[in-house]
Design a protein around this nucleic acid. Structure first.
Length: 229
DNA sequence: TGCCAGGCCGGGT
DNA sequence: ACCCGGCATGGC
């Protein structure tokens, strides 16, 4: 265990040294404003299984339509919203998911900052009750919009850790999350950057079909490609 | 050209 | 309790 903790901290250093800060949210969207926080939450839903470049187009459409507010999104009909977010793919399901999320905020009082401003436990519970908001999306919102020290796990996180023998093949989301939170100090900026770096490294070196470990920032850490997947 | 992206849900076994 | 099909655009 202590071995795993140390490895995870060293992996962070190695990835940061190679890639530098990733400037994910909130740096991008002025996240100390209500609109910035809402934009992050919207982006978290739109990016589900979707390239971030496509999400940016969709968000640009929403901004141009002056739709980046709880009231505007709540008032918009399905077809209208689906059309605006079309570039992000899965536009019909995502329009519903956005509406579901906005409904939850509206029912909480309609203020996104108030909605986010509570314990991670309470926030996570409400987010996970929204159909279309799963574990990763909820944690992304809580971390990047809500500023909570909660670690985000995605497919790259699981794949990279498994390749390096740090988790079981069948480790579930909560297990992986806890592995990080046990190993690391409870630090929002650290969790923010760590997840972003794992995604950056995953894209470059740890894709499903084309792993290339030669030049990977983590290649000095013991790993086994064949157990990958 | 086919594969992939910062998942999640609902229905079937 | 798993397993799987469906959802869909744009980039490389």
């Amino acid at each position: 265990m202590a071995r795993t903790d140390e490895t995870l901290r060293e992996m962070y250093d190695a990835m940061l040294a190679r890639f530098g800060p990733q400037h994910w949210w909130p740096a991008a969207a002025g996240a100390d404003t209500a609109e910035g926080k809402l934009e992050i939450c919207v982006g978290a839903i739109l990016t589900q299984n979707t390239n971030w470049g496509n999400v940016e187009r969709a968000i640009e459409n929403l901004r141009a339509a002056d739709a980046l507010s709880v009231d505007a999104l709540d008032a918009m009909d399905h077809a209208q919203l689906a059309e605006l977010i079309k570039p992000a793919g899965y536009f019909n399901v995502k329009a519903k998911r956005l509406k579901n999320f906005i409904r939850a905020v509206a029912e909480f009082g309609g203020d996104i900052e108030a909605f986010l401003d509570r314990s991670v436990y309470s926030l996570r519970e409400d987010l996970l009750a929204v159909s279309g908001v799963g574990l990763e999306t909820a944690d992304s919102m809580a971390l990047y919009a809500g500023g909570k020290a909660t670690f985000v796990v995605d497919t790259y996180t699981a794949r990279i850790l498994h390749r390096h023998g740090l988790i079981d093949e069948d480790a579930d989301y909560e297990q992986i999350k806890e592995t990080f939170q046990y190993a690391l100090p409870e630090d929002v900026a650290l969790f923010n950057e760590y997840h972003a770096l794992l995604v950056a490294v995953g894209k470059e070196y740890c894709r499903k079909s084309k792993p290339r470990c030669d030049d990977c920032p983590l290649s000095d850490f013991p790993h086994d490609v064949t157990t990958g997947q």
